[in-house]
Simulated scan of single mutants.
Amino acid sequence: MAKIVLTRVDSRLIHGQVVTKWLQQSGADEIFVVSDELEKDEFLQSIYVMAAPPGVEVKIYGIESAQKYWTEDAVNSNAKVLFLVPDLPTLKAMVNAGVIENDIQIGGLGGGAERKNVLKNINLSENDVSVLNDFLAKNLNVFFQAIPEDNPMPIEKLIEKYNSL
């Protein structure tokens, strides 16, 4: 059975930091990306696949096909997986499907309308805070950590900051 060694929320998905630091630190030999948008865009998929180092397989699925993969095909794999999603609603679907049951690392959430900056790479919306509170209610360990050298920060601190803005 494929084993998820790191679950990371990062709006940039596969980028230098993920490739140079998190793959090595986690010991992953496969990157599994869940994004409905990316699943439909073969050109962008090819760019993300090229961004991975040699010997690291990249799999890209939408939410529905990712759920199917983890219930049917992951049992035939011995991969150590770095599980990447671009946003919290996507992750929530994976948690609700029972795919993600372990620690959740928040690495980067981009800005935009109705989003408040709570830390250097973290911008939260009201919906994000609701999703994070749902995770905490399920006793999932959710934390912010941009790079391996940083100490993990409990997500509760970022929720408090959001509520104070």
Score class of each variant (00 low, 15 high):
2 A>W: 12
3 K>I: 08
4 I>P: 12
5 V>T: 11
10 D>A: 06
11 S>Q: 11
12 R>A: 05
12 R>V: 03
15 H>M: 08
15 H>S: 12
16 G>D: 12
16 G>F: 10
17 Q>R: 09
19 V>S: 04
20 T>M: 14
23 L>S: 08
23 L>A: 08
24 Q>K: 12
24 Q>E: 13
25 Q>L: 07
25 Q>D: 12
28 A>D: 14
28 A>C: 10
31 I>D: 06
33 V>H: 07
33 V>C: 07
34 V>H: 10
36 D>T: 09
36 D>E: 12
38 L>Y: 08
39 E>I: 03
39 E>A: 15
40 K>W: 03
42 E>P: 06
42 E>L: 14
45 Q>I: 05
45 Q>L: 04
45 Q>E: 15
46 S>K: 15
46 S>P: 04
47 I>C: 06
47 I>S: 08
48 Y>M: 15
50 M>H: 02
51 A>D: 13
51 A>C: 11
53 P>L: 09
54 P>I: 05
54 P>V: 03
57 E>T: 05
58 V>Y: 06
58 V>M: 10
60 I>M: 13
61 Y>S: 06
61 Y>A: 12
64 E>S: 10
65 S>A: 09
70 W>P: 04
70 W>L: 02
73 D>K: 15
73 D>M: 09
73 D>A: 14
76 N>F: 13
78 N>G: 02
78 N>V: 04
78 N>P: 00
86 P>Q: 14
87 D>W: 05
88 L>T: 03
88 L>V: 03
88 L>E: 03
88 L>H: 06
89 P>N: 02
89 P>D: 03
92 K>A: 01
92 K>M: 01
92 K>D: 03
95 V>H: 04
97 A>Y: 00
100 I>G: 02
100 I>K: 00
103 D>L: 00
105 Q>D: 01
107 G>T: 01
108 G>W: 01
108 G>P: 06
109 L>Y: 02
112 G>P: 08
114 E>K: 15
114 E>G: 02
116 K>G: 00
119 L>K: 01
119 L>T: 00
123 N>S: 13
123 N>G: 05
123 N>M: 05
125 S>E: 02
127 N>A: 11
127 N>L: 11
128 D>W: 05
129 V>M: 12
130 S>G: 07
130 S>N: 13
131 V>S: 04
132 L>Y: 06
133 N>K: 13
133 N>T: 08
134 D>K: 08
134 D>I: 05
135 F>M: 00
136 L>M: 05
140 L>H: 13
141 N>W: 00
141 N>R: 15
142 V>N: 10
143 F>A: 00
147 I>N: 02
148 P>D: 11
148 P>M: 14
148 P>N: 11
148 P>F: 09
149 E>I: 10
152 P>E: 11
153 M>S: 04
155 I>G: 14
156 E>V: 15
158 L>I: 07
159 I>W: 08
162 Y>K: 10
